[in-house]
């Protein structure tokens, strides 16, 4: 229930190109603030990347610090990080030796993004479908069942769902592989994608149901009924588009979350995505890796915010794009 309708208030005659330019330029300070906050937060957290359970000798740590530039004043490290960032360089990983953060993300992101995109697409189509059916049967059994099942789907943690699905379809029925990853084998996608898509599907179904019930009570839907149009036309042509606006608002965070990978799903299913880097990086004080992941997530979120605003403007012609 955390979607708040974005207030898009920009001029009618504003050309799309100019609008996009405004939005992209406006995102730069936001992103910079996010990078800055993250940089200093992680640096002020106690312990550093080379503090292990078994302490390294002090001179080794000092050498490592020097090698990674951690011995310089913090503000110098900050400016040099920003300089590298401006050249598209996320810096070397502290924990994955011999890998740069750019390489890690470049290798893992396609896996996470592919799975996430498929999951969100299924969640969108399935959730909207289920929500519409529930709304049209408002107050009847189908509706109650949808609400009940959606709460369960939102409530079951992925670390329960994925092993349970693996147990059922992999170990008991031998239909699907439990773990392992071959990007060309569709069967490998089924369980992780199912686990990823179920919560957003349930959430989208709830959002669609609620807004659809409201739209079906609106005066213009009554007009459409009075015109003698068949239910199919009324739902698909008149009611669905306005009912999708809350769903569109929810999409921005959902896409950013899902496409940057799920630690739980990728760890349990053994997928080479980027889902674990954020948590691992923060736990290990892998400063550059954490920052890289934060930037990927935030950029995706901001970009999706823009896409969603355009989507909403397309869904409702009364909304004007203003910069």
């Amino acid at each position: 229930m955390s979607t708040v309708r974005p207030v898009v208030t920009l001029g009618r005659r504003m050309p799309l190109i100019r609008y996009l330019l405004f939005r992209v330029l406006g995102a730069i300070p936001t992103l910079l603030a996010i990078v800055t906050i993250s940089f200093f937060l992680i640096r002020f957290a106690p312990a550093g990347p080379f503090d292990r359970a078994r302490a390294l000798p002090a001179d080794v740590v000092a050498n490592l610090d020097a090698a990674y530039g951690l011995d310089r004043p913090l503000w110098q490290q900050y400016t040099s990080y920003l300089r590298d960032l401006a050249h598209g360089d996320f810096g070397p990983s502290f924990r994955y030796k011999d890998f740069s953060v750019t390489e890690l993300i470049r290798e893992g992101f396609p896996v996470s993004a592919t799975l996430g995109a498929i999951a969100i697409a299924i969640a969108l189509v399935g959730g909207v479908g289920v929500g519409v059916v529930a709304a049209l049967n408002h107050g009847r059994f189908v509706d109650h069942a949808t609400i009940g099942l959606s709460v369960v789907a939102i409530a079951v943690p992925s670390f329960v769902l994925l092993p349970a699905l693996g147990l059922l379809f992999g170990i008991e029925l031998h239909w699907l592989p439990v773990a392992g990853w071959d990007p060309t084998s569709i069967r490998d996608y089924v369980l992780p994608v199912t686990t990823l898509c179920l919560p957003p599907l349930a959430y989208i179904a709830r959002l669609t149901r609620a807004s659809m019930i409201e739209v079906m009570r609106s005066a213009y839907v009554r007009t459409a009924f009075a015109k003698g149009l068949p239910l199919r036309t009324i739902v698909l042509k008149h009611a669905l588009r306005p009912a999708l606006i809350p769903v569109a608002s929810y999409l921005a965070p959902a896409v950013a979350m899902t496409m940057t990978g799920s630690l739980v799903v990728e760890t349990i299913a053994g997928l080479p995505g980027i889902g674990r880097y954020l948590v691992q990086g923060a736990l290990n004080r892998d400063y550059t890796l954490v920052l890289g992941m934060v930037i990927v997530y935030s950029t995706l979120l901001i970009a999706m915010g823009l896409v969603v605003d355009l989507l909403i403007a397309a869904l409702d012609p009364r909304i004007r794009l203003e910069a």
């Binding site: 609106s218 009075a226 015109k227 042509k237 008149h238």
Partner: peptide
């Protein structure tokens, strides 16, 4: 309904579908 018997409602502000052009709403009848 809509063919031999038709109805006009009270509030024209809300009685037309906001995201469809007038042409589309009329011709579909």
């Amino acid at each position: 309904r809509g063919e031999r018997i038709a109805m006009v409602f009270q509030d024209p502000q809300t009685a037309l579908t906001p995201h469809l052009r007038i042409g589309s709403q009329m011709s579909e009848v």
